[in-house]
Nucleic acid binder design. Structure first.
Length: 282
DNA sequence: CCAGACGCGTCTTATACGTT
DNA sequence: AACGTATAAGACGCGTCTGG
């Protein structure tokens, strides 16, 4: 078993196809097939269930994939330990849009200066989507909001550390709640942790949301613009409001604080991730 | 120590086979 | 017919062995 075989195995597992894995790795499909057969012969178990047009991981294959990825990460780490300036690697980071905008620019700049050979791939999304991507091994780590005490899904086997404390504020135009008209609360799509806070707040303060409708928006800028013109109210982190630098008079009421966690799969620790964690938690 | 012979592993190409 | 996997045959590169 060598690292090339592990790379081949991981590629087929990811693509679910020998042909696509072969194209990805720049090799002939038969070469990929041979590698897999050698691995299966050596291990004595089938790593894949061959279907008509798909290669699906067997139960043993799924177990082995985790180890294969760890071995490849470890190998990359070893190279980085020897030649930190010349080992190109990518750290896949997921983060909520607000965290990306308000919290990450400074630590990311510091990280890039200290580790120029490490590329950072950034994915923005709501917390639930980031958790799914983390579980599917599409991300190495993610920054997402979760109430203290709430647990992450068992399937993820997550390890998490608190990174930031966000103060969530209710933002609205002056006297917005005093008007008699139908009220609107701007929120992000389901899966956003702050939307859950907004819904809980509605439930508690507006009889389960009676008389208030939710308007789904795609960005904080959209949310802020609707709020500024008095079309709705919204709940957003104070750090994001600060970024907007509003020159309009809006009422701000602090509702609660909520931690943002740096989450990764249990046992995952690469040099790149360790360095990134240090910058984030500094 | 060096050069050639040899064996082994890995690769590609061509082709067969099964399924949709 | 198109797509995907498996197999066979031959080419190539590399390491080891051996004789000069």
């Amino acid at each position: 078993m060598d690292f090339l075989s592990l790379t081949v195995f991981c590629a087929v597992a990811r693509e679910q196809s020998v042909t696509r894995a072969a194209a990805l790795l720049g090799r002939a499909p038969s070469n990929i097939t041979t590698r897999l057969r050698q691995m299966e012969a050596e291990l004595g178990v089938p790593l894949f269930e061959r279907q008509t047009k798909r290669m699906l991981l067997s139960a043993q294959g799924r177990i082995y994939l985790e180890y294969a990825q760890r071995m490849l990460t470890l190998a990359e780490d070893a190279k980085m330990a020897i030649q930190p300036a010349h080992t190109a690697t990518t750290l896949r980071v997921g983060a909520m849009e607000c965290t990306l905008a308000s919290r990450l620019p400074v630590p990311l700049a510091r990280f890039k200066a200290a580790w120029p050979a490490i590329s950072v791939s950034l994915t923005a999304g709501p917390s639930a989507q980031l958790l799914r991507a983390l579980a599917a091994q599409e991300l190495d780590c993610a920054l997402l909001a979760q109430q203290p005490g709430a647990s992450f899904p068992n399937t993820l086997h997550a390890q998490e550390v608190p990174a930031f404390e966000e103060e969530l504020q209710l933002l609205c135009s002056s006297g917005y709640w005093a008007h008699g008209a139908q009220k609107v609360l701007a929120v992000f799509a389901p899966g956003c942790s702050y939307r859950a806070v907004a819904e809980a707040w509605l439930h508690e303060h507006h009889a389960g949301g009676e008389g208030v409708t939710l308007r789904q928006v795609a960005s904080y800028h959209e949310m802020f613009a609707y709020t500024a013109v008095g079309a709705c109210a919204c709940i957003m982190p104070a750090s994001v409001i600060t970024l907007m630098v509003p020159d309009v008079t809006l009422e701000r009421t602090t509702l609660c604080t909520m931690p943002t966690w740096l989450v990764s799969r249990s046992g995952f620790l690469s040099t790149a991730f360790a360095a990134f964690s240090r910058e984030i938690l500094a």
